[in-house]
Write a protein that binds this DNA or RNA. Sequence first.
DNA 1: GAGTTTGAAACT
DNA 2: CAGTTTCAAACTC
Length: 162
Amino acid sequence: MERKFALITKGDLSPISPFSQFCLTSLPPIGTFSAQVEDRIIPEEKEETKIEQLPIVNTPCGCKRTHCLKLYCECFANNRYCVGCNCHNCHNLPSYDDARQATMKQIAERNPVAFKPENNTVLKVCHCKRSNCVKKYCECYEASKACTPLCKCEGCKNMSVG
DNA sequence: GAGTTTGAAACT
DNA sequence: CAGTTTCAAACTC
């Protein structure tokens, strides 16, 4: 079987774009990154898995229709390649960097901080109607933050007291 | 595990 | 900008 993807490790970043190098070198380490990439991309070549011994830090996505190139995809939204995910026909991989970066550029034009680190600290503004902001559907609740008057939620039970 | 609910993201 | 649709995760059964 022809090898379709090159195995990228931190020690060999030359084949990929500067942006991808940034992702791989600047983002917090994902414990099983190298082992999982190897498992996913060239499984026929691996002798044994090391995954059981390593902590899994990233939350795997399960995208089916977006190729993991929309903000629906948590990996993509968090500026991570998909590694060890349950997604279908994933394009959020180093081998699709051209399309990936084009999409990121397009999204960044709509939301300049979409992929920037400060996006994690920017105040969340939710629009919940039925969850009372006490379920993880609510972005504020999910981020362990109280809703604020800027939120457009209804029946909110996630306002800070005092 | 399957089906439903939910609200952000994307689209018109 | 507002309304609608799409999407994937959270949730329920």
